[in-house]
Write a protein that binds this DNA or RNA. Structure first.
Lengths: 249, 249
DNA sequence: TAATAAACTATACCTCATATAGTTTAAGTG
DNA sequence: CACTTAAACTATATGAGGTATAGTTTATTA
């Protein structure tokens, strides 16, 4: 079953064709279908809605039978992550590395916005699926003319990936006031409580920041503020990158 | 029970003294003890070892009784996160914002190295506990002389936090070959499989990178390589920050 | 037609988080 | 000193989830 020394997980992740069984029943499903169903559930109800029993019910099958197609729940999550991350090709060819990276990161942000559960999938291994590699590839392509060595390119892409992921999670946090919180005054109560607890004696800078209302500007939507922060952070990173390049390109 | 309009969660997070009960049984535990026990379990067995039943057993108590001290499992995780993140005060006062931020990020990295479960705690709200705020405060302090406005300072700290967190997770991934993987040849098999699947036709840049062995340098410990990447990324961000400052400081 | 093995089902186990309904225990009150 | 009251804790149960183990069905090949 472990042909060519390729681990089973990789065979499923890359949808490698399996030698058609010479014997036994024909399968009613395939990895593709199972993963697609799980992704649909996550799209509709978040990560916690993508459980084996629920996928099984959707596919009219017993939960246990899914183990013919995925090795474990964790593996299913990895498969979902890759399957739900199709590469996006920019409409116009970017004019340079800077615009290229900007677009790349911005597309990643959109992916995380469209499927908020993706950044919530716990990271347990380096990107290794076809789609994740495709994102990596696109990033490398944009960095091709920078003269960086592979280690630096990889470092830059890792850095940006983490940044986008983290920003997206933060945006989610701020946007929804946590729907499952009963009290109506929670969102406001939290802000007030924080201001009361963060005293100038113990936290002088933070207290001043809270007083200056840089946080929680209730007049504009929280999402927009986070997006602005995202753009600013991106430019900062790109500035740093520009600074490290052998020469300006 | 919700005195002063401070939500219960905040009262527990900040260990606000509760008015001593005029009536009823005396409590055998307190938030501090419960959280400390959960943290100990996570330190020893990772996040998944910190379950309510296990904490209860450690404290010789029924699982349900823990709900007198924490509102939910999710809340317990937030309490653990804050309790396990004591601020670290640098030995010597840093000489400028750049060294200050470098030390700050580096200390955060060490925290995540000492307690690998911390970056695995799902993020559901902005930092709001005393220790998390203390980290924030220290960051603000280092940025005090930069002339940035609050929004930019916050953005920088958010960016760096995400970067450290992400890097730490990546380091964990690479360091351990996943202990629960049965096959001995897994780590090597994965690398070989990836090289076989990432073909120059579909992924020209990535294939070249894999061929150049920038990834998975088996001669040096993976942890060291990630740490080097972390340091490099940090300098990049600091370069970007320097570039955005009104004038050099 | 029988052997074989793959795909699927049935059942069961264990662990969790948590709701609901008690029960114990202390402090105040008459 | 009973006696109420309410807080802290226990008992029990529910339902969900992941997954091991042991069948059962179904197609292919001999």
């Amino acid at each position: 079953m472990n042909n060519d020394a390729v681990p089973d997980f990789f065979r499923r992740l890359w949808r490698l064709p399996t030698a058609p069984a010479r014997l036994g029943r024909r399968s009613t499903l395939d990895v593709e279908t199972v993963v697609a169903s799980a992704v649909r559930l996550a799209d509709e109800g978040g990560l916690e809605a993508a459980t084996l029993p629920k996928v099984a019910k959707e596919l009219d099958v017993t939960p246990m039978s899914l183990y013919r197609y995925v090795g474990s729940k964790q593996e299913l999550l990895q498969l979902m992550l890759d399957a739900a991350s199709p590469p996006r090709t920019p409409a116009a060819e970017p004019s340079g590395w800077r615009e290229g990276m900007r677009l790349w990161a911005s597309d990643l942000w959109e992916l995380y916005t469209d499927r908020p559960w993706i950044p919530r999938v716990p990271i347990y291994r380096s990107p290794s699926g076809p789609n994740q590699i495709a994102w990596l590839e696109r990033g490398f392509a944009q960095l091709a003319d920078t003269g960086l060595d592979w280690g630096d390119k990889l470092m830059v892409l890792t850095l940006l990936t983490g940044f986008v992921r983290h920003s997206a999670l933060l945006a989610q946090d701020l946007e929804e006031g946590r729907s499952d919180h009963s009290e109506t005054e929670d969102k406001d109560g939290y802000a007030r409580a924080l201001r009361a607890l963060v005293t100038p004696e113990h936290y002088p800078h933070t207290a001043e920041m809270l007083a200056s209302a840089a946080l929680l500007p209730s007049d504009e939507p929280a999402g927009a503020a986070v997006r602005a922060d995202f753009d600013a952070g991106l430019e900062l990173v790109l500035d740093g990158l520009a600074h490290q390049l052998p020469e300006d390109a």
